[in-house]
């Protein structure tokens, strides 16, 4: 689109045959006084808020000091690890239960319905606590080939993984189901007509197309997961928030440490948002005639447009 605009104002452009030469319109643009006023008001509010923070009981120098503290970095990596692992569990369970939910087999679809109902209907915080205290119901885990005290098996990591992963699976199942149902029925028919089985059709034809619908909310879920993972404090897992709280309780730098944690959470979600953009772009192939530009391509296009405009003026 920008190309067209540039061409229209380009001096070297020759008009197509049959069109009459035209004088570009030179009009005075509408003045937006409201924008100026609101910008000033908001700026004043931001300054006032900044002043309040600077006067509060906060030693700002502590924030950069503790940002790369060894225990904070360890907590950060644990947060990433538990989020990625739980999301992986959630994704696998989500696809499995979505396919089960849509199955013609009444047993599998009922099981899937019950799983989604149970894990989506109870708070993830409660689920975490139930996993962590599972030894109260099953004091000993006996799988036949493996036997141990439940308190030994149910480590903070496992409790966190089961709590977050199983909860996520229920949400992902609904997202994947919506994706599968968004694929045109003609696709399934064409695939069946070629002699492909149900499983092949799902794996090769339906799911790849469903991904376009599945990926954006899944990115949202992952960003949520990065933050929800802070609840694993409840099961003694040493994540970013726990590390920050530990330092806060010994150094009395309470707000400072919460800011440190917030900075890292923001950094994680920002980095991931960029990754999500490229993932969505990948799954758009074939569905769009031209892929949307990458952020880098946008920057380049804007720069060249800027220099073009200067040249015209």
């Amino acid at each position: 689109m920008t190309d067209k605009l540039d061409k229209a104002s380009g001096p070297a452009d020759t008009p197509p045959a049959g069109s009459t030469p035209h004088e570009p319109i030179r009009a005075i643009p509408v003045r937006h006084y409201g924008r100026w006023i609101s910008a000033v008001v908001i700026l004043a509010l931001v300054v006032a808020l900044g002043y309040a923070f600077s006067q509060g009981n906060v030693r700002w120098a502590t924030v950069p000091e503790k940002l790369f503290d060894g225990s904070i970095i360890k907590g950060l990596f644990n947060t990433i690890w538990i989020s990625v692992a739980s999301m992986a569990v959630g994704l696998v369970l989500g696809v499995v239960f979505a396919v089960m939910r849509l199955s013609k087999n009444p047993v599998t679809s009922t099981i899937a319905w019950f799983y989604i109902w149970l894990f989506r209907g109870t708070p993830v915080y409660v689920q975490l606590l139930i996993w962590f205290n599972l030894a109260l119901i099953f004091p000993v885990l006996n799988l036949g080939f493996y036997k141990d005290e439940m308190t030994q098996v149910m480590t903070p990591f496992l409790a966190a993984l089961l709590g977050l992963g199983l909860n996520e699976g229920a949400y992902m199942a609904e997202i994947v189901r919506a994706g599968i149902q968004s694929v045109d029925e003609g696709q399934t028919e064409a695939s069946h007509a070629l002699g492909m089985t149900q499983t092949q059709t799902m794996r090769r034809v339906v799911l790849p197309q469903a991904m376009r619908v599945i990926v954006p909310p899944t990115g949202n879920e992952f960003i949520n997961m990065l933050k929800t993972s802070s609840l694993v404090v409840a099961v003694q897992y040493y994540d970013l928030l726990r590390a920050a709280q530990d330092i806060a309780s010994t150094s009395f730098a309470v707000m400072e440490m919460f800011f440190v944690a917030s900075i890292w959470y923001l950094a994680l979600t920002s980095v991931f948002s960029v990754g999500q953009y490229y993932l969505e772009r990948y799954y758009a192939r074939g569905a769009l005639r031209t892929l949307p530009p990458t952020p880098w391509q946008k920057v380049k296009a804007n720069l060249s447009r800027f220099s073009n405009r200067k040249a015209v003026a």
Partner: peptide, 30 residues
């Protein structure tokens, strides 16, 4: 169904595959 080809009113090509991949899909998979 392997031995019966079908052509649909609305084509129903697989949009996430190129023309060649569309044609290759069934022989490879089936």
């Amino acid at each position: 169904r392997r031995d019966i080809g079908m052509v649909f009113q609305r084509f129903n090509l697989f949009p996430h595959m190129t023309a060649i991949e569309n044609v290759m899909e069934a022989p490879v998979m089936v």
